[in-house]
Amino acid sequence: MTLIEEFLMPGGGTSINTLPKVSLHDHLDGGLRPQSIIELADSIGFVLPTTDADALGEWFADQSNAGSLVEYLKTFDVTTAVMQTREGLSRVAREFVEDLADDGVIYGEIRWAPEQHLARGLTLNEVVEAVQDGIEAGIENVEKSGRSIRIGQLITAMRHANRSLEIAELAVRYRFDGVVGFDIAGAEAGFPAGTHRAAFDLLAREFMPVTVHAGEADGLDSIRGALFDGRALRLGHGVRLAEDVTIERQDDDNTFVTLGPVAQWVRDRELTLELSPSSNLQTGAVAAWGEELFDHPFDLLYQLGFKVTVNTDNRLMSDTTLTQELALLSDAFGYDLGDLETFQLNAAHAAFLPLEDREELVEAIETGFGEA
């Protein structure tokens, strides 16, 4: 797994690595270092496919290229297995923050599902506190190196389970101790957001920001549920919103389209799409449009004025970084620094932070790109 690799913009040679970035959709259990997995597995007697770090990183990437979200999710059985102790959770969270900073991220939201980390006797409160301890240690290490980063937890409920109300209560309980929002994740098809209406009602009463995985492994009905039942401010992936965009005709200079009601609503309300290009290819989320990055409807949505953001989803499984995702998109669609800045500004405006803090993020991004 390549944690630090320099990517340059075509022509000008500006390093994408050093540009200030905002990461909105990044799973804690999808961003472990292979060597850390090996060491943590050894400490608890968990058997891995291999104990060579490079080979293990390749194993995760190979297993994740199944073209199915269900198959893709099976790799998390390994990562969550080594995240069942205070030490494991704190270490993974600390290293996660350090790796984000090495990728040029100045603000990141880390999403993870506390209910998946109770196998060795920890309570929900204890796992949240362990992760927060690791986050704070990571921030401290980043600051020692002369850089800065801010991190918020997105507490996630598993949509195929029945603990969402309890997890929503957990998120509210820790909203001033590191938690900035709520999410539901896991197998999407067959598990609509409406199943978790009680949790979303609680979150709405408490004015807790919500993002919902939708439009990845399921289509427009799932997105409708995220908007109606979840009151989502952002769509986790949301790539299949493009199913509600009809291309009427094209000529050499223009593409004429019609937006369906769901797409029209999302665009007109400037609801943010947390797109993850490499992951979307791996899970088959964009199979209706093709198998290459150039086929991804990212550019279509961007050109139509949707609030698109760029994310990694799971850095280990996709063997990627936010820098790499931006470089891949730049290569596929010819984006320049102005486009990349727009993606970061979109993310900054959509962060689950107070307005004043978002304005500071915007200023930091504009300054960083202005100096590039």
Rank of each mutant, 00 (worst) to 15 (best):
L73S: 14
K74T: 15
K74Q: 15
T75H: 05
T75P: 00
F76R: 13
D77V: 02
D77R: 08
V78L: 14
V78K: 01
V78T: 15
T80A: 01
T80H: 03
A81N: 13
A81L: 05
V82Y: 09
V82S: 03
M83G: 11
M83V: 13
Q84D: 02
Q84N: 11
T85I: 09
R86M: 06
E87N: 14
E87R: 08
E87Q: 12
G88Y: 12
G88D: 03
L89Q: 14
S90V: 01
S90N: 10
R91E: 01
R91T: 13
R91Q: 07
R91M: 02
V92C: 10
V92H: 12
V92K: 09
A93G: 10
R94E: 08
R94P: 00
E95D: 14
E98M: 04
E98D: 02
D99E: 05
L100S: 10
A101Y: 12
A101E: 11
D102N: 08
D102K: 08
D103I: 01
G104I: 02
V105F: 02
I106N: 03
I106S: 01
Y107F: 09
G108M: 05
E109D: 09
I110P: 14
I110C: 10
I110S: 07
W112P: 07
A113Y: 14
A113V: 14
P114Q: 11
P114F: 12
E115W: 13
E115G: 11
E115I: 15
Q116R: 15
Q116T: 15
L118Q: 08
A119Y: 06
A119K: 12
A119T: 15
R120T: 01
R120M: 14
L122H: 02
T123V: 00
T123P: 00
L124S: 04
L124E: 13
N125E: 15
N125H: 12
N125P: 00
N125S: 13
E126K: 06
V127K: 07
V127A: 03
V127W: 10
V127L: 06
V128T: 15
V128Y: 14
E129T: 08
E129S: 09
E129N: 05
Q132N: 15
Q132D: 11
Q132M: 12
Q132G: 07
G134D: 01
I135D: 00
E136F: 01
A137F: 00
A137L: 08
A137S: 04
G138E: 03
I139D: 09
I139T: 09
E140D: 12
N141H: 06
V142N: 07
V142R: 01
E143Q: 05
E143S: 05
E143D: 06
K144E: 05
S145L: 06
G146F: 05
G146R: 09
R147G: 13
R147H: 15
S148A: 10
S148P: 11
S148R: 01
I149C: 06
I149P: 00
R150N: 05
R150G: 01
I151K: 00
I151E: 01
I151R: 00
G152N: 04
G152K: 05
G152H: 06
G152A: 04
